[in-house]
């Protein structure tokens, strides 16, 4: 079992590393990730939302839908723990 797990781990890791070979070098300002969407946020977020913390602006507004579900996730976690664990009061 453990050997199988080790094998699966190694294979997964190898595939992931193989995938990184096409990435731009780390921290490259010209990589797609840095040039496609993010400039828009950096340039416009403050103007469009008047929030200087870009992370908050994107979190709360541009991707507010994600954050809404994030809140729902943690809410679910709370409910799930209560429903799973709590025993009725004597």
């Amino acid at each position: 079992m453990k050997n199988l797990a080790l094998l699966a781990t190694l294979v997964t890791g190898a595939i992931l590393l193989y995938g990184t070979k096409d990435f731009a070098p780390w921290g490259d300002p010209g990589s797609p990730a840095a040039t496609h969407l993010s400039p828009y946020y950096i340039e416009n977020a403050v103007e469009q939302t008047h929030v200087p913390n870009l992370v908050t602006a994107v979190l709360g507004d541009y991707r507010g839908y994600d954050t809404m579900f994030e809140t729902v996730v943690i809410y679910c976690a709370g409910m799930a723990v209560v429903s799973v664990l709590r025993r009725p009061k004597r």
Binding site: F69, V72, V73, C76, M79, V84
Partner: peptide, 13 residues
């Protein structure tokens, strides 16, 4: 992904 986790976490519960 977020929604996938919502469905999962509710299912776990």
């Amino acid at each position: 992904y977020v929604l996938l986790e919502i469905t999962s976490i509710t299912s776990y519960g």
